[in-house]
């Protein structure tokens, strides 16, 4: 699997030299951002066992904070990411503390986090003076980086391609390091039997909160970039369908793996473009895939591939 990931990364690095189509690059860029969201979501869902419906909200809050700071207050994009992530961290700590102190699990946790998410969406929708309500905010600025030869604006498809690929690699590595450490073992204990974990000395509340906050902040990191690539932020970012899309990506790719959500996200981002479908049919396709995956391959694409390998 390690080699497959390395080869995949290598192919991704050289792809823009071969592929010159802007639309394919755009699909890849959205795919990388969706994959980053899915990987960070899987830290909370697949590895800690908490079905968070707050992920789209973390993504949206950060997108709005960065956009408002840059367009209204003329902050530097890179600097604006810091307060955006701090806001997401504070929100996730508040939501997480409430949910985990009350020991909310499974559907109760999902419903309560969904309610918090809706509250944030409604605030964004109605706080016209700051968020421009349902119209959202158009983002014309592009982040720039400093190079020895001067400032370089990230505006071309290729530069966004590498930026979002780097984002995915960073999110992946952070999650990988966490899961390989003692924290990963605590999260596994919580997912599989939190009562036993607690009697073995694991602070279940602390580690659940840690996983939720880290996952949410990573979603915020993706949100910070998303608006600047797509050119607008809107209340739809907080919506339940986006949360469900992320779940579909994780389930399709494989819950119990780090690379699974990357594969799921890339497949589900590319699929509607490969088979051209209207928005309604696209949602129906998502739904059908979810049902199919749950019934036929509960461990997702990665589960299917690895079991084939074992059988061979």
């Amino acid at each position: 699997m390690k080699y497959a990931i390395a080869v995949g990364l290598l192919l991704a690095l050289v792809a823009p030299a071969v592929v010159h189509s802007d639309s394919i690059l755009a699909i890849a860029i959205y795919g990388f951002m969706a994959a980053s969201l899915a990987v960070s979501f899987n830290l909370i869902f697949g590895f800690t066992g908490q079905l968070s419906m707050f992920h789209a909200a973390s993504f949206g809050v950060s997108a709005y904070v960065v956009t408002i700071l840059v367009t209204t207050f003329k902050w530097n994009f890179w600097l604006a990411i810091i307060p955006a992530l701090v806001v997401v961290m504070i929100l996730s700590l508040i939501v997480g503390t409430i949910c985990f102190r009350f020991k909310l699990k499974e559907f109760y946790f999902a419903v309560v986090t969904m309610a918090f998410s809706e509250v944030l969406r409604l605030i964004t929708l109605n706080w016209n003076s700051v968020t421009n309500g349902s119209l959202g905010i158009t983002v014309v600025d592009k982040p720039s980086i400093w190079t020895p030869s001067g400032s370089f604006a990230i505006s071309s498809g290729v530069s966004w391609y590498y930026l979002t690929l780097a984002l995915l690699v960073i999110v992946y590595i952070i999650c990988h390091r966490i899961l390989a450490s003692w924290i990963g073992r605590c999260l596994a204990a919580i997912r599989l039997n939190d009562q036993l974990g607690e009697t073995l000395g694991i602070d279940v509340f602390k580690y659940k909160l840690l996983s939720f906050a880290i996952g949410s902040v990573l979603a915020g990191l993706v949100g910070a970039f998303y608006g600047f690539y797509s050119g607008f932020v809107e209340p739809h970012y907080f919506s339940i369908p986006l949360g469900l899309d992320i779940i579909a990506m994780v389930l399709l790719g494989g819950v119990n793996s780090l690379i699974g959500p990357v594969i799921g996200a890339l497949v589900l981002t590319a699929l509607p473009h490969v088979i051209e479908l209207s928005a309604e049919l696209r949602i129906a396709l998502y739904g059908s895939i979810l049902i199919f995956v749950i019934l036929v391959m509960p461990k997702g694409i990665v589960g299917l591939l690895t079991s084939r390998k074992h059988a061979a």
Binding site: W182, R185, C186, A188, L192, L196, L200
Partner: peptide, 20 residues
């Protein structure tokens, strides 16, 4: 009480939490 899916050795590794 067990952690389903995990091996005996993995159970022991989790139980080493306090030690670490």
């Amino acid at each position: 009480q067990l952690f389903p899916e995990l091996t005996v050795a993995q159970h022991m590794r989790i139980a080493c939490h306090l030690h670490v």
